[in-house]
Computed example of a mutant assay.
Amino acid sequence: MRVSELRFEPADVAGVRFTISPVWETVSSLWVLDNPVRHAVHLSWIDRAGVALRRPEVAVRVQPLRELTRPRRWLPDFLTPAASRADVTLDEQLDQIAATPPDVVVRDLLSTTPSGPLSPFGQALLVDPRGLLSQLVDAVRIWHDEAIAPDWPRMRALLEADVAHRAAQLAEGGTGRLFDQLHPSLRWLGDRVVSDDPFERDFDLGGRGLALNPGVFTDRRVLWNLLEESPPAGTYPVRAVGTLWETSPTPPGDPLARVMGSGRAALLHLLDSPATTTDLAWRTGLSCGSVSQHLAALHAAGLVVRTRRGRHVFYRNTDAAMVLLRAAGGE
């Protein structure tokens, strides 16, 4: 088995942080369109996004991005910059891409060639990075507006719930527990992370820390941005991605729905992992006002707890709620 090793100094352990990247989701989503069978969990999104991409006026403007995200090809690091913080906006990341120095564009493009030759747009960008970079930025924006923005509140809520879960792991068990539970392909060995990885890299973080972000369209393994000249970053598969497109979480004939109503039962079925009011509204089809009322009642009954993290309040089932769910399921 091939592995990569990421070596940590004390400053790197202290510099582990979590981010959410709108640009990463936008760019990586094109891989999903190229292999819908592998990403069957996203079929409802794939159908909608495919319709958008077949529109000629969208296809021609997104083409530069498509050429740099071909299947089984490495991405140039400048295209997916490490998010500076958890609430970074799309515009901020696009400004970061647009400000990439020409020599960095060239360096990052050349670093992808071991995985295959550059596409026609990649070759043109290599020759004229200053003149053509704006076309690439425009392509990312157009694709985000067409394919990601309509579902971004739902995606972001799922990503924020994952970050809240990982932050709790880090606070309760330290860096070792975090990496041991982040993904089955990772192992923490005291001063390094060993990652099952076909590229067999040996990388010293060098005191720069490590940005970690969950990815909706990331599957199977952790993907690393590891160049000596770029901020180190890794993207791992988000938890509970199978719930992302659910709209009817209450099982037919659910006994809890008969006792407490379908809305409150639906929320309990979803709250085995932290979620915000907005996330729950998207996933149940209820209004935010209705979700807030149900959560207030469940909280008063001791069935959910709430935790504030930054600007957001996350809800999660208590042990008492889990007992109710198991009993209703006949376990």
Rank of each mutant, 00 (worst) to 15 (best):
D180M: 01
F179N: 03
N225G: 15
L212P: 05
T235Y: 08
G242M: 07
P231V: 10
V216R: 09
L189Q: 13
V216Y: 02
F199E: 14
V193T: 07
L226M: 11
E228C: 01
P198Y: 04
W188K: 02
L226I: 12
V222M: 10
N225T: 14
A233P: 05
L223W: 14
Q181G: 06
G234H: 09
D204E: 12
F179G: 00
E229D: 14
R208A: 15
L182S: 03
G206L: 06
A211G: 07
R187E: 14
E246W: 13
S248R: 15
L223N: 12
A240V: 05
P198M: 06
E246D: 11
V241L: 12
W188C: 02
E200Y: 02
R221H: 07
H183R: 03
G206I: 04
L205H: 10
A171I: 00
D180F: 00
R177N: 03
G215I: 02
L244K: 13
L210F: 02
N213L: 15
G242K: 10
L212R: 06
L205D: 08
D196C: 01
E246M: 15
R187V: 01
A240D: 15
F217T: 05
L182F: 03
T175K: 02
R187A: 14
V194M: 10
F203K: 07
V194R: 15
L182R: 04
R221S: 10
D196I: 07
V238W: 04
V238A: 15
V241H: 12
D219K: 04
Q181Y: 05
P231Q: 12
G207M: 09
T243W: 12
F217C: 08
G190W: 03
T175R: 01
R187I: 01
P237D: 09
R192Y: 01
P231T: 11
W245M: 15
V238K: 05
V238H: 09
D180Q: 10
R177E: 12
R221P: 01
D219E: 13
N213I: 00
P232D: 13
L227M: 09
P231H: 11
T218A: 08
A233F: 06
D180V: 00
D197L: 03
D180E: 15
R187C: 01
T235C: 12
S248C: 06
D219Q: 13
P237H: 09
R201M: 13
F179S: 01
N225W: 12
S185N: 05
L212T: 07
P231W: 07
R192C: 04
S248F: 11
D197G: 03
A211P: 02
R220G: 01
R201D: 06
L189K: 09
L223A: 08
G234N: 07
R221M: 11
Y236C: 05
P232F: 12
S185R: 12
L244G: 07
S230H: 07
V241Q: 11
T235L: 07
R177I: 00
S230V: 15
G234W: 08
T243G: 10
E172H: 11
T175S: 13
T235P: 01
F179Q: 02
P214Q: 11
A233N: 07
G176S: 00
N225Q: 14
D196H: 07
V194C: 02
R187Y: 01
D196E: 15
E246N: 08
N225F: 05
